[in-house]
Design a binder for these strands. Sequence first.
DNA 1: ACTGTGGACCCAGTAGGAAG
DNA 2: CTTCCTACTGGGTCCACAGT
Length: 462
Amino acid sequence: VAEGLSEKNINPAKITIICANRYFRPFAFAYFNNAEPGNWHAAVLKILAWTQDNTYIQTSYEHKLPIESFAEFRDEDNVVDESVLPDAPDSVDTPEETEASLETFTTPQHTPDSVDTPEETEASLETSTTPQPVNRDRQQIRTDGDNLLATPQNSESQQVVSVPNPVREERITNRSILPVVPADLLYKLQNTGAPLGYHWNIHAGINLRCVKAFIIDERKREYLIREDANSSKIIAPIARRLKKKKWELEAAYLIWISSSLHKQWPWSYMEDESEAEQIFAQTYPAISRHLIDYKDILKSRGAGSKAKYYWELSSRELKRENYPEFYQPKIVYPISGSAMQAAYSTWYAACIPNTSYCIPTDDLSLLAILNSKLFDWYARAQFRNSTGGSNLFFTKKNMEKSPIAFRSENQKMELSYIVNLILSNPNIPEIPDIEKEIDALVYELYKLTDAEIALIEKGINP
DNA sequence: ACTGTGGACCCAGTAGGAAG
DNA sequence: CTTCCTACTGGGTCCACAGT
């Protein structure tokens, strides 16, 4: 509420909020439905949103939108003054300008026939494509209307042009009124699709605190089982990423002995550690012989470890109830590194170490996006540490905020098909070409212009 | 002019501690 | 117990210098 005004003398029904970024992607109106003066609390905020994908035009008439006109975009706004971004005040706010522009855009409830003519459409496009510096803070408004961004297409209503439809890429590039700078591209990406955390859950891996003792390879596993068949009961598959490799994971095994604090082992209630050690050695002789080599390191595991004895992990029992994410197909990616190297695991009950995160999903189009050049560019722009190191941190918070573009079923299928080509033939020499194909499709998903793609290909970050 | 060696430095990757 | 991040490790690269 502006200074000098109180809730009482504002009529919420007279307020319409326009939410858009400089590219009008997405573009939304919000207004208070059933609002009455002095009764703010009963007002329901209604949102009408458009994206480039969405050609269905919602008319103000259809929704009884209380707005009758739009402010005219002035010519001088054609010149994008970077110094006033992002905090430039919205010029629409000044009363004179609002007053002066009343005739410029008239909604179809007054002239429903005339807007159908091509000239009219052209005229409204011409005026409205001009970018308007908008206060970014206002655009942070998040509503449950995220799903509106994924409204299915409906081309039938294309001829009803009631609201300026400025989302026309070719116009923006042809007029070259918008120099493509990395900050703009970053901003555009941030306003595309929905954040990853909106549709998916991210799960952390198991903190082993001594990888070399607990993780073994196939040969060692076979050896341990040959020595003592019981060993197989406490050996679980673990999906580790391969160094400097996307898509593929390394198959390894983890000696999973849950902490006595979570599970009752024959040695769990021994007072004396050497006594417990003896029982452990009798129960799992081969594994006991293996872990004893790391006794000193394991014993030095410090605070935070809830393991009761040195041969135990601090984790709970490996069961579906405790770790449902390990029992599903999942995308696995590193917690930090020089680049995103996501991979896909269908290995049943395969756990992951705490150097990785996983997203339980079989949506390979998400994997395609994560491993694309576009996402790499985004990560380089967004995921650096405050200390300025070279590492990128794919932390849970960072990843949850990452914008994932809307994908139609067809697009999902196309991307999944290509990703499957790589997954089923991980060592063919054509992989770089296939990855380029994926990059191109991902650029398409995010509706990037040629100039923006060039920016990413050249690796120019903000 | 070319090759081999070793030290210095850089950087990617990781273990594990701190904080919550 | 989870999440994040720091400090460490170890591999890679560069470069000066010595030997062939």
